[in-house]
Computed example of a mutant assay.
Amino acid sequence: MALQAEQPEDRLAGPRIGLIARGLALTGGAILIAIAALVTVSVLCRIVTGSGIDGDFEIVQLAAAIAAFCLFPLCFAARGNIIVDTFTTRLPERARHIIDSVWDALFGFVALVLSWRMVVGAIEQRASGTTLQVYPLPTWWAVAICAVLMALLGGTATAVGLRGLRARHVR
């Protein structure tokens, strides 16, 4: 069995979370490919028949939101996010590492709070019967999926922060 090189997300978030993050990113990528196919078919239908796929813009909106939320955990775990360190560049590396780890954990907490509020929003959308404009398809399920994915982002960020604080060595 060949040894697999350690990925940055495994080093920062741990191998289990890294594996989940990679799986979610692949799912998000597949959703984006499906969106591209849907838009392509709709445009081709408009060219050929003068009418595209009804509600394609709404389907793209829901699917793009889910795809984006699928990509967030890997982006965070691999340090793919933008970090502005204007005020900490002159600090010792260990101090920067501690500050980054604290902010990572705090971001995880905020993401978990946002996830909770998204769950509340999904419940309210379900109760009110909110649907898409073109099709009577309810929207609460997409918000609920994004809430779960936001919770996974929160868990990833918290894990990265706590692992960073427990690390005996600097990255």
Rank of each mutant, 00 (worst) to 15 (best):
48 V>N: 07
43 V>H: 01
69 F>K: 06
152 L>V: 12
98 I>F: 08
88 T>Q: 06
139 T>N: 07
54 D>M: 12
75 C>G: 14
141 W>T: 10
109 F>K: 03
87 F>T: 09
144 A>G: 09
99 I>W: 04
109 F>T: 09
113 V>T: 07
80 G>T: 11
93 E>V: 07
142 A>H: 08
79 R>D: 14
47 I>T: 10
138 P>I: 00
89 T>M: 10
101 S>E: 05
139 T>S: 09
47 I>R: 10
62 L>E: 14
107 F>E: 01
50 G>E: 02
146 C>Q: 09
85 D>N: 14
81 N>M: 10
127 A>I: 10
130 T>S: 09
77 A>T: 07
54 D>R: 14
29 G>A: 10
56 D>Y: 11
122 A>T: 04
65 A>M: 13
122 A>R: 02
125 Q>K: 12
131 T>V: 10
109 F>D: 00
43 V>N: 04
84 V>D: 13
82 I>Q: 05
129 G>Q: 03
50 G>Q: 02
144 A>T: 05
86 T>V: 08
38 L>T: 05
145 I>A: 13
46 R>F: 00
93 E>Q: 12
75 C>E: 07
123 I>P: 00
108 G>D: 03
149 L>Y: 06
136 P>V: 04
92 P>L: 00
34 A>S: 13
124 E>S: 14
30 A>E: 06
93 E>H: 02
96 R>A: 02
82 I>Y: 03
60 V>D: 09
97 H>S: 14
133 Q>W: 03
87 F>M: 11
81 N>L: 09
83 I>C: 03
149 L>I: 07
30 A>Q: 03
66 I>Q: 00
90 R>L: 02
84 V>Y: 10
148 V>L: 15
146 C>M: 14
34 A>I: 08
87 F>I: 08
64 A>K: 09
50 G>S: 02
108 G>W: 03
86 T>G: 11
50 G>K: 01
73 P>L: 00
104 D>Y: 14
146 C>S: 13
55 G>K: 11
44 L>Q: 06
64 A>I: 05
133 Q>G: 04
92 P>A: 01
119 V>H: 08
78 A>T: 07
67 A>H: 07
143 V>D: 06
122 A>L: 05
105 A>K: 01
145 I>P: 01
104 D>H: 12
95 A>W: 01
58 E>V: 05
42 S>V: 02
104 D>T: 04
57 F>K: 12
120 V>Q: 12
77 A>C: 02
55 G>W: 10
53 I>P: 00
59 I>E: 04
42 S>L: 01
139 T>D: 09
144 A>V: 07
145 I>E: 04
119 V>F: 15
131 T>F: 04
41 V>K: 04
32 L>M: 15
59 I>T: 13
88 T>R: 06
72 F>G: 04
36 A>H: 00
99 I>H: 03
142 A>C: 08
93 E>W: 02
141 W>F: 13
100 D>N: 08
57 F>G: 11
123 I>M: 12
33 I>K: 03
68 A>Q: 13
48 V>R: 07
33 I>M: 13
47 I>Q: 10
116 W>T: 07
152 L>T: 08
